[in-house]
Amino acid sequence: MKDIQTPLVEMKDIHISFGGVKAVDHVDVHLHAGEVVGLLGHNGAGKSTLIKILSGAYRADGGEILINGEKASINNPRDARSYNIETIYQTLALADNLDAASNLFLGRELVTSLGLVDDDAMEAETRRIMGRLNPNFQKFSDPVSALSGGQRQSVAIARAVYFNARILIMDEPTAALGPQETKMVSELIQKLKAEGIGIFLISHDIHDVMELCDRASVMKNGKLVGTVNVADVTDDDLLAMIILGKNPAEKR
């Protein structure tokens, strides 16, 4: 059923090299609305590089990106945002010296009628969304460097969710989190999925992927090993793909 619809995102034949190293080597992935696609692979397999091309942080050497079946040109993070692509980076990409509200609205500040940044309005909005995402969050006037790992993560997540993302990229969203907060992120993913948002989830954790994802694409040394329906494979199949680069479809 799903395959008949036009995918939300199609990345076709994407390739990029850094100094002769093929970081992403002619990879195809796609994502439907309301679907979670896991991107798996070792460190340096090219998953982060691939999604940074989608989020506009890198420009691909070749290949094309289709959004809703139409060719999209994404040359910088601003372009990506204009296609409602939001990204939670593994590094969180927060300006540590600024407070939560300034980070949440960075590059998209709320302004007064005179075009001046409206800090009070931004803080009010931040309080509103944090009340939903992480009710324990209270440090609204401290720089984010004063926050715990989990609190910083929730600022990064709030930033991606606030602006009505249709395509969400999450790069290791639970890496810095304790069990409680990890559960919160899992619930959030389920909820966003139910709202019809398409999510690329990069993770090291096979269990996360098995639990949260509909499909999984595995990369190794910049190449796509294969894409599988999570329901059709076991943990071991995925591990074999990651470690050996062996596609379960080839077995049969």
């Binding site: 993070p77 300006a95 010296n97 600024l98 960075l106 998209r108 500040e109 302004v111 075009g115």
Partner: peptide, 20 residues
């Protein structure tokens, strides 16, 4: 905004760039 971007870029240049 200019002032805000000055401080954001100083705090984390990469984050500022990723924020567009």
């Amino acid at each position: 905004r200019f002032g805000r971007y000055v401080y954001a870029t100083g705090g984390n240049p990469e984050a500022a760039e990723l924020s567009g």
